[in-house]
Write a protein that binds this DNA or RNA. Sequence first.
RNA 1: CGGGGCGUAGCGCAGCCUGGUAGCGCACCUGCCUUGGGCGCAGGGGGUCGGGCGUUCAAAUCGCCCCGCCCCGACCA
Length: 567
Amino acid sequence: MLWSKLFIPTLRENPAEAEVVSHQLLLRAGYIRQLSAGIYSYLFLAQRSLRKIQQIVRQEMDAIGAQEVFLPALHPAEVWQESGRWDIMGDNMFRLKDRFQRDLCLGMTHEEIMTVLARGELRSYKQLPQIWYQIQTKFRDEPRPKSGLLRVRQFLMKDSYSFDLDAAGLDAAYDKHYQAYCRIFDRCGLQYTAVEAHSGAMGGSQSHEFMVASDAGEDFVSSCPDCGYSANLEKAVSRHSQPLAPDPAGDLNPEPFHTPGRKTIAEVAEFTGLPESSQMKSLVLVADGKPVLVMLRGDHQLSETKFGAISGDMEFRQAHPHEIQNWFGAAAGSLGPVGVKNMQILADQALAGRRNMIAGANRDDYHLRHVTLGEDFEAEIHDLRQVTAGDCCLSCGGALAIHKSVEIGHIFKLGYKYSDPMNLRVLNAEGKEVTPIMGSYGIGIERILSAAIELYHDKDGMILPPSIAPFDVVITPANNSDTAQMEAAREIYEACLAAGLDALLDDRDERPGVKFKDADLIGIPFRVVIGKKLGSGMVELVERKGKKTTDVAVAGAARAVAAQAGR
RNA sequence: CGGGGCGUAGCGCAGCCUGGUAGCGCACCUGCCUUGGGCGCAGGGGGUCGGGCGUUCAAAUCGCCCCGCCCCGACCA
């Protein structure tokens, strides 16, 4: 294509609203323009790149026997009410009414629609297994859209759904997806890891997320450099460190002592001269409308996800100060588990086996020493703490690291979460009605592009992997008014097209510097520059990554590009 | 939803404190010139200063309300 005819509105300066690199470059390179918060128009270059990504996704989905369909984005409320998610999704769901005041919504995901489709059509075990997928626009009314295309309110998602007769079938479908996702992200040129994940509002038993490590991400991944263990921080487990000081020995009884003005764990540690790990931290939460006292080691943090899963209420909240005063007769800085009878007590497993620790006395400005779980109070023991960097890996003992990541894919074993309540049934070989088991598998199309830019860029612009770049090569005559250069440029351009390369001829009447800057910015993997060396029949082939330059003959230029691009 | 910031030409910004009717750079248009890293010269077009109400002889500037966008937090299949 001829650059002079294209609309590629590059910007010399960074728009003020863009914070993360991928957002800045997508705007500057003329890929996208914002319409509203979290809603973007994809211009020519973005559309080309996103189509290449979608093509890779299609090929790999087709390769595992998945069938592409296209479902509605506009859904009647009834199907979401059937699964119970009409209420669960809350304000994150875009809702609207039609002219008859019927409730509708814009699809955030398509489990319900797929299940409705399946239950109307699937009758026999002989029709299973099935994998259906689509590439659809999803709508989510994010409370805070941010970071360009990384967190938006309207986006493209490849979502697929598997239907199987039994758990072994689901395992196979899940594994096929896992493998296909690896191939997709490999082909897109991404460095990524698959991590164990929390399944959240999707429900289900097992779940992996595909993550690209980047500070622009919003998820935290805990990983072990030694054995490869890797999990979303929401789900991650570890062996906690040893307490910094030994517990006092013996069958000691709780004993109050005055701690004037010491409310925080750190203040009490300083006051007593004992480390934070010798204390118990008391948190008061309200789940399902009921108070729960959560006990953690003083230096540990609560994992809200783990607590939500255990309490069965992801919408839990912290207790208000007046509630705490009512229930404990003391304020938040002096709470403890001893003598608490009016609520459930949960304790983190790091407290099991500990003796004679320090906890609040439920009397302002007093704490207790010699508090022991199982003797001085009873509690249900669970894994409640959030992993911190430096914790020991459960499988190998290595030191866990934590880094921010962008989630580009997520696969779930849904089990019967949708098929059962929504009455999806088929007859098995014995003629008995059985409920198929389902899986659900998503890929964020724009996130692949954004993550690639976050991973691969330099001060001059994007360095896109060739497989997802909008063009393979840009042909740049240095001087438009030099007819010999223009002729050679056209010849090379035609040869590239003939070789099956996506080629762009920069025929704009601009100075060379402008063309070079733009070519670098939009991230085309290869550039052929026709300049002064044309006198001796040579042109330059420049690789965007690293700016490595080689001289090639005009006649061999297209072949050289194809070879370097691996075509 | 809580905290903070911003809104003046397509983009980046100044002007606002101390009211007097809008300016700079880039981009854009015309001509000349130039051609290996956003070139030079000359001329030119483009803004109801986010919106409303108020104060004032006079509001981009002061006050109140609203809207939008960005950042932090909460939230997030």
